[in-house]
Nucleic acid binder design. Structure first.
Lengths: 338, 338
DNA sequence: TAATCTGATGTAAGCGCTTACATAGCATAT
DNA sequence: ATATGCTATGTAAGCGCTTACATCAGATTA
């Protein structure tokens, strides 16, 4: 079955039915320009009677606005994703914007074309390393509104970005492990190079060590990759080679899960034999066995703010260039606290 | 900063640069109609040189196709959502379609306008009860391609639908609890009325009871609502009133989690004091304490198939009217198996 | 009273594409 | 040699809206 072309209702039919011009119908729909209440009523009645729906493409072509925002992510695989998407979807809808989503995970990120951009959105939320800096530069140059989420602006571009206190969060976690729990040898499962959250979290880890006069030991660092399987692998290697740490700090909860599984396979008790902490506080964290000590990141809130800012930028308003949301230590059993 | 209108590159500039007409450029881009290889090469060179991107709105207006599909969900809250979205996004992108997402959770579902429909998509994936039957009827009448996901077609409409073997899955679970584990009193945390998965799962539960000559006891049924908080509440009530069942079958894993928490609060041991099983096998299930026995539903696969079918319908091809994917019992500790 | 302004509406020119139709060149069939 | 068909390309008419500009009636001002 095909869309029935024959009796398609356009603004022209509405205008005729209401006995006004198309311009007036448009004014009523978009609430632009002055219209007599009675005229508006007639138009609304016509819209209702004919069951008219404005064609988004025609609107977009004429007004040069799509009324859509795009969300670019690398992959839809982490638990992280769900609260982020909820925040974005809800806020976009509340702002009257459609939401287009695309992941760049499967494709060669260095090579255009990218699925979302100036030709099909009014602006973009760019998550972490979903888009290469080169393309961000290009979009910035042509003036496409953008907000970066969990990523900071390339130097001198002043693209608004929203992220969480990664460094401070990691710093506090390690401070806690050292000061409250008495650990000195703290292994670190770092995130992927390309991901900025990973960079700051590692820095927080290093700063805390330095502040406590603990030398940084590269042997205590391995790749967690923000990924369960990768972390599993790395921790298994550590175990085989006799890791000397008494606690593992995974740079995100997904890698903490991988670590937890590897440790259980090696029949190490958590936290008695080795403690384990993560970062993000995804929903799973509280339900793990033992429940995971972690750093709570306000993922959904960051997403909401990013969309609010994007909408403002699209409307030509000024926004905060850098929004850093606070993180919070969440103590559960996996760190040996109780 | 605004999009730079002055030197916008359109198909006209490309045509001039390449020394051909706009029709030829269009033919090259869309691979419609015959074009000499050398001509095509010139056009590609022009596109490259000018960094031309076709305007989606203009394309849509002229061709009457948006090249976008819409996904309508009720709420983005369950773990269920992530694998589903991944399946949909990946398949949509592979088919060259943009993906628009909207949830109808916050709004009054009975009342238009709906955010996604014939004016901004070529077709819709409608998840469960995200859209009232009335609107589905309207869209069907005007011929908008649709595929229903985890919901079956209204009578006589023959809208393709993709779902999982809910009834058989539930039936097998209860068969297993009765035959292998020896339970006779099996409490059931049912899903929300509006959700079709809930209906079939309950039916499977009832069928198994009947097949084993166990009378159906309404007192053993309470609302889980596919929701952690709701299940928590219901199970707490049960505990207060002295539930006589030795096992709880939660109609989905989210409600199983709520049940688990309520049971732990009541200091009941799982599975020694009371066993617990769920449905879906969300990622969390394996990590709970104890790991949750459940029915695995191929959520991502169902999503992929739904998009594949939708794309076929959009292209005017025939598709299966009803796709039922097999579910599978996943035995873990929470049922008292080991 | 004439001049001016304001509010309500209409007219029509695009927005940037796709595509039906026209055209032209050339090979093949008659 | 003319007719026929096919390939490659161009011309131009929209697609369904928005919006700059024009118009006109009535209110306000000098």
């Amino acid at each position: 079955m095909q869309l029935d072309d024959s009796n398609r209702i356009t603004i022209v039919e509405v205008a005729q039915y209401a006995g006004v011009s198309t311009a007036t119908v448009s004014r009523v729909i978009n609430k632009t320009g002055p219209v007599l209440p009675e005229t508006a009523a007639k138009v609304y009645a016509a819209i209702e009677a004919l069951n008219y729906k404005p064609n988004a493409a025609a609107r977009g072509l004429a007004s040069r606005r799509t009324n859509a925002i795009g969300l670019l992510v690398d992959e839809i695989n982490s638990e992280f994703f769900q609260p982020m998407l909820r925040g974005i979807e809800v806020t976009a809808r509340a702002s009257g914007m459609s939401l287009l989503i695309s992941s760049t995970g499967g494709m060669d990120k260095a090579t255009p074309p990218y699925p979302l951009g100036e030709n099909n959105t009014d602006g973009l939320i760019i998550f972490a390393d979903s888009l290469p800096q080169e393309e961000i530069l290009r979009l910035h140059k042509i003036g496409l509104p953008m907000v970066l989420l969990h990523r900071s602006s390339p130097p001198n571009l002043n693209i608004p970005c929203v992220t969480v206190e990664n460094k401070i969060g990691a710093r506090r976690m390690v401070d806690y492990l050292i000061e409250e729990r008495g650990y000195r040898k703290i292994a670190f499962l770092e995130g992927p190079d390309s991901h900025e959250d990973a960079y700051w979290r590692k820095l927080g880890y290093q700063e805390s060590l330095a502040a406590h006069n603990i030398p940084f030991d590269p042997k205590l660092v391995s790749l967690g990759g923000f990924d369960e399987a990768q972390a599993h692998l790395s921790v298994s290697h550590w175990v085989e080679q006799g890791l000397k740490a008494k606690v593992i700090f995974a740079a995100d909860d997904d890698s903490a899960i991988g670590a937890m599984i590897a440790l259980k396979e090696a029949e190490l008790r958590i936290p008695e034999d080795i403690a384990l902490v993560g970062f993000d506080d995804i929903r799973l964290a509280a339900y793990l066995d033992p429940p995971l000590t972690t750093v709570r990141a306000p993922i959904e809130q960051a997403a909401r703010i990013a969309v609010e800012q994007l909408v403002k930028v699209i409307h030509g308003e000024e926004v905060e260039l850098k929004t850093l949301l606070p993180t919070e230590l969440v103590i559960r059993r996996s760190c040996g606290c109780c």
